[in-house]
Design a protein around this nucleic acid. Structure first.
Lengths: 226, 226
DNA sequence: CGACTGCTTGATGTTGCTCAACGTGCGTGG
DNA sequence: CCACGCACGTTGAGCAACATCAAGCAGTCG
């Protein structure tokens, strides 16, 4: 881990942009940067949550060991704070976070972070904005998972990677079929079947993890109508 | 609607407790109290979100018109802020809120609320705490709905009313079977079947909307193992 | 009394999970 | 270098869980 020079950081969060020079200095002294490779565990579920975790670059999955099987809550792209609610809730990490791509993370001292909230209204407001957007997104996901059937969920996940993560209709999945299933809340067999079906119907071109969307309109339809 | 005298209000939120006398005064001038009866709509989905909504007393359901059918996101008991994320997100209400019992609500001017966040760190921190707890709860719900089968979901909902809403093993459901189904994410027929099954197995005593939990231990087991 | 709402129960069809078999690529150790 | 185990992926068959459809009942309101 390195003490980071936050003044020079070009990847500040919108909240950190609100900090004064003096506060940025304090941040730098209470902040450690770490690098992770794909598969590395960044946060472990049920561990004590002692730091705010800022995802500076990279891609991670937020997941939880369910009673029965692992469930991936969501995929988060930098920049983002990871699991703020765990920091302020009961101080226990409710989720694990694992890197999917090479990822850089800053661990920020929780007390310093709190101090900023107390003393810098603009900072606090940005954090609240951030949490609000997050929660709305989560609700959207929940609804999908609650009402759609398998084919719609898979369509959803594909569109999510295309639109939100890679901004491209052709991309390489950063996850296995197993993880895809955990994300959609179904079995890996079902994922497999649906992907080959999409391939046969010329909706996708599937080649291992390489995906190309051929008929986006239809895919959106499938995603929407369930 | 009445201008409320916030100074004398005994049902302040933990955030409002942090306000100074002067701020409470400002709050009083920018706050309107309204009463609702069961079935009354408090917030309407897709409407412009112009006020912070504080649930002072009563019980409401937060729901959303899905593509296919209505889904109840959750049941919220006073005291609580309703839908803060909608206020700070895109200013559109993402959910509807409907009273289930006689309910009192304070509408607070959003600009005044923001001002408090900017200028009073304790207030901002309490709001963040509140949102954090909310989000953790929501995740818990999401997980349940994602992994459990029908019988476990119904057990969950019954335990929720017993433990969280009424703090008693005998209570009267504030919702129809239809709403119970929308809350558990299943059909009303399934709810019906499972409740009679619970009744036959002496787990519950079901008498219309009147519920008594006879075998809580078993009910918890059913809820946990899915 | 008829219309309506809320609830229950049974019959039937569909969805998707489980289980099992098998193919493939990769790394390890003999 | 080959044999083997292992993770990942695909495919098919059977079955359980649920939704849907349909019918009927009780209570209520005009």
């Amino acid at each position: 881990m390195n003490k980071s020079i936050c003044q020079l950081c070009s990847l500040k969060s919108s909240a950190a942009e609100m900090l004064s020079d003096k506060e940025i200095c304090i941040l730098g002294e209470n902040c450690a940067e770490t690098h992770y490779n794909p598969g590395d565990i960044i946060i472990k579920q049920d561990a004590h949550s002692t730091n705010v975790v800022y995802l500076k670059s990279g891609l991670v999955k937020i997941h939880i060991d369910g009673i029965i099987k692992d469930k991936i809550i969501k995929i988060t792209k930098a920049p983002a704070y990871l699991c703020l609610p765990s920091n302020f809730g009961d101080k226990i990490n409710h989720f694990s976070a694992t890197a999917l791509e090479p990822t850089t993370v800053c661990f920020i001292n929780l007390d310093v972070f709190k101090k900023f909230i107390y003393e810098n209204g603009d900072f606090a407001y940005q954090i609240i904005l951030d949490m609000s957007k997050n929660e709305l997104e989560n609700f959207h996901n929940c609804l999908n998972n609650a009402q759609k059937q398998n084919i719609g969920r898979v369509a959803d996940v594909i569109l999510f990677f295309a639109n939100t993560i890679y901004n491209s209709n052709t991309f390489r999945l950063p996850v296995t079929r197993e993880e895809l299933a955990a994300l959609a809340g179904i079995t890996r067999e079902s994922v497999s079947r649906i992907l080959t079906e999409f391939n046969n119907d010329k909706i996708l071109e599937v080649n291992g993890r390489q995906i190309t969307i051929l008929n986006e309109k239809l895919l959106i339809q499938i995603s929407e109508k369930g």
